[in-house]
Design a protein around this nucleic acid. Structure first.
Lengths: 134, 134
DNA sequence: ACTGAGTAGTCAGGTTGTCTGACTAATATG
DNA sequence: CATATTAGTCAGACAACCTGACTACTCAGT
């Protein structure tokens, strides 16, 4: 299970690098994948990535410097800023998602469609008892 | 999938800590889990943990200082040393394995025995196409 | 309206895990 | 027996992450 999930993440990351994001580390990519289309607060990013807001701040700094995200004031809360992906980051995200879809297609080819459907359902069930945040 | 496999590793690690290994980091534990009963060379540990021998050397240093492993000369090769678990480390390993078995039992209770068998088989199949080392 | 509690974000300092590069000692090969 | 290879270590650097402390802002209760 570890091997398979790691393989999936590695393929998504490699696709992102191939799409031009060669200066993004895996950790930065993992955080960037948590950003909503309209932007997300740093604390929310930190919670989703299971890390502290200090770490998230630092990673957002790096991503901002590299031109993948921008910080804009949150109109709903003067304390907060929204982290938003730039057009460049969007392109990278599309490429990564396409690679994940391709990989899942290969899995289905290897194990068969019924088994793949059952896997998806089993994982949904396991998440109920293994996800400490949901 | 990521969530479930992470949950399993976390439970094994927590059990190890509860069994008295409170001074072992998750990374050290991950390396220690790769040691064979008769001992294993540092380069082999590095390969299994997908890391460099420099990192493995450093982790073995820490584990040796904490009394979990010992280095003995390899009788078959004068250059090599075998990293072996001490009695203390063995106890911890037993506790961790017991916790993994307990967790898998809970999974089976939640999703049912047939689904659990199919999951195991599916994972074995996926490993064929996702494990870059096997 | 104003004070006090809570929240968003950042800064500072330190630890861990990891890497590349360079080195020694022992083995294997021609 | 000279050379190439392999096991292991040392040194220096960097990325990721943590705890603690701080500022700026919001909001609920008086």
């Amino acid at each position: 299970m570890y091997v398979a999930s790691r393989s999936l993440e590695a393929r998504a990351y490699d696709a992102a690098v191939a799409a031009g994001a060669s200066d993004v580390t895996p950790t930065q990519a993992r955080l960037m994948a948590q950003i909503d289309p309209d932007g997300t607060r740093v604390v929310t990013l930190a919670a989703r990535a299971r890390t502290t807001k200090q770490s998230a701040t630092s990673l957002v700094d790096q991503l901002e410097r590299a031109g993948y995200v921008e910080r804009v004031p949150d109109p709903a809360d003067g304390r907060a800023k929204l982290v938003r992906m730039t057009a460049r980051a969007h392109e990278v995200g599309v490429a990564a998602n396409a690679e994940v879809a391709r990989a899942l297609g290969e899995w289905e080819e290897h194990v068969g469609a019924p088994r793949m459907r059952e896997l998806e359902e089993t994982m949904r069930m396991l998440r109920e008892i293994t996800d400490p945040w949901a």
